[in-house]
């Protein structure tokens, strides 16, 4: 296969966008699933157990590298598309009624993606670098009642700050809009469009876009308000 065929054309860029996007979506499911363990409301015991398993499993750790690569590919590919798309319309309209023919979020994937990326940096700084012992470490926190590393405590501590909570909620909002278009868009990019199944994909996309970000947003909110302890 020619190199240009893999990287060059606008369509191949879209395939990568869709594939990496769907891959990141699967990560979201896992991530949301793991973190939802806090809702057992058992002082983080279950959550810490699962988190520990995921943090030490060799397969998961390998996938983490793939995940980062996927994220970087998604971001870089997105930036390339964004740059080309801007260049394709160098002169703007004096008067443009975009609302008549498109949703604002479908035409703002670049901005939404950038917001999510900024949020991710903050988020990684809060949790990932510490849990992996890159800057600081979980050792600074007391162990949980079962004697496990206490990632849960780090969450509780982090979400004591209302500004952080607001940032997380906004991040989840960006994710919601990004997914609302991105989910079904990925299918279309891969050519998966069929009159019979389109409504199902669309409906599933909407439900997914609502449930996952809501679940994520509920975490800092419920911790801040002390619904989970």
């Amino acid at each position: 296969m020619a190199r240009t065929a893999l990287f060059g054309s606008s369509l191949v860029k879209k395939y990568w966008m869709a594939l990496t996007g769907l891959f990141l979506i699967t990560f979201l499911v896992v991530h949301a699933g793991v973190n939802a363990m806090i809702f057992w409301n058992d002082g983080g015991v279950t959550f810490n157990m699962v988190a520990h398993f995921f943090g030490t499993n060799i397969f998961i750790r390998t996938m983490e590298i793939v995940l980062f690569l996927g994220l970087i590919a998604h971001v870089v590919d997105g930036l390339m598309l964004w740059r080309q798309n801007r260049a394709a319309r160098p002169v703007k309209y004096a008067m443009e009624k975009g609302s008549a023919s498109r949703s604002w979020y479908s035409a703002s994937m670049g901005i939404l993606g950038t917001l999510i990326l900024l949020f991710l940096i903050v988020h990684l700084w809060h949790f990932w670098v510490k849990s992996r012992g890159i800057v600081g470490s979980l050792d600074e926190l007391p162990l949980d009642p079962e004697g496990q590393e206490n990632l849960f405590a780090l969450m509780v501590q982090t979400f004591e700050n209302p500004i952080v909570v607001v940032i997380y909620v906004l991040g989840c909002f960006s994710l919601f809009w990004h997914l609302l278009h991105g989910f079904k868009s990925a299918f279309q990019s891969l050519g998966l469009n069929h009159k019979r199944y389109n409504p199902i994909i669309a409906a599933f996309g909407v439900v997914f876009s609502i449930i996952v970000p809501t679940l994520f947003a509920l975490m800092p909110v419920s911790m801040y308000f002390g619904w989970i302890q």
């Binding site: 606008s10 369509l11 798309n85 260049a87 035409a107 868009s185 990019s189 891969l190 050519g191 469009n193």
Partner: peptide, 30 residues
């Protein structure tokens, strides 16, 4: 530019050409 599945083209097309065609091109090209 690149298609990002916004769908404005389909709405504004005077001949009602469907986005289904874009998906077909995506399939054919893939």
């Amino acid at each position: 530019g690149n298609c990002s599945n916004i769908g404005a083209c389909e709405i504004e097309c005077p001949k009602d050409i469907s986005l289904e065609n874009i998906a077909r091109l995506n399939r054919e090209y893939l």
